[in-house]
Design a protein around this nucleic acid. Structure first.
Length: 208
DNA sequence: CCCTGATTCGC
DNA sequence: GCGAATCAGG
């Protein structure tokens, strides 16, 4: 692959949006994150922050790079009141893919006050949290177990290979994501995949 | 271990 | 100019 104008533009866009080199590389395809980083440097748009204007040393790099930043700082949440963490009727679609929150996206603003308290916004994308519905007791038991040894990651710590299963009330400090290694291709660890993706077979309810 | 960006240097 | 290898860090 080569750096066509389009690709370079996408690169610039994503980079200024705060996307990581690896994410950009994936998006572009045909290039590694190294290639992306290399290109970024050659383009002279290294520093992404509008801050830290190189204090006392090496203002060197990117001297000829205007880099117009338009920090897309998104409002954490205009609406402070969140109704209730009601147990969302278990997402039991024949075609799985319970589209979790937008955990993938780079949170523009860290929902963490420097007082240590983690203030999770918990916008509208309320996750699965299946109610003890028609899920095998085994699977549920498994989940309980797993939650004990979960990594308890914060939103920002999630990656593509960490279980994105949410635990607790998003409105409290006791909210976290499982964080255990995900199952190949899935967004959750084995245990949580078990309750997140129900085989249609078990969904057949009392004949129609 | 997973990830991040930064630099170097042969091509 | 390009990007793998490497470095330095979280």
């Amino acid at each position: 692959m080569s750096w066509t104008d389009e690709r370079v533009e996408l690169l610039k866009k994503m980079w200024s949006e705060g996307q990581s080199a690896s994410q950009i590389a994936k998006e572009l395809g045909g290039v590694t994150r190294n290639a992306v980083i290399g290109k970024v440097h050659r383009l002279g748009l290294s520093n992404r922050a509008g801050a830290a204007p190189a204090p006392a040393a090496a203002p060197a790099a990117a001297a000829a790079a205007p880099v117009k930043e338009a920090k897309p700082v998104k409002e954490p949440r205009p609406e402070p009141e969140i109704a209730e963490p009601v147990a969302p009727a278990a997402a039991a679609e024949p075609e799985p893919e319970p589209a979790i929150p937008a955990a993938e996206e780079r949170p523009a603003a860290a929902p963490v006050s420097r007082t240590g308290k983690t203030i999770v916004p918990a916008g509208q994308p309320l996750p699965p949290q299946p109610s003890a519905n028609e899920i095998s007791p085994e699977a549920l038991a498994k989940v309980s177990e797993v939650e004990k040894k979960a990594k308890k990651l914060t939103l920002m710590e999630l990656t593509e290979r960490t279980c994105k299963w949410p635990v607790g009330d998003p409105a409290t400090p006791d909210f976290w994501f499982c964080g255990l290694p995900v199952q190949q291709g899935k967004p959750y660890c084995e245990a949580h995949v078990g309750v997140a993706f129900q085989p249609m077979s078990s969904r057949r309810d009392r004949r129609r």
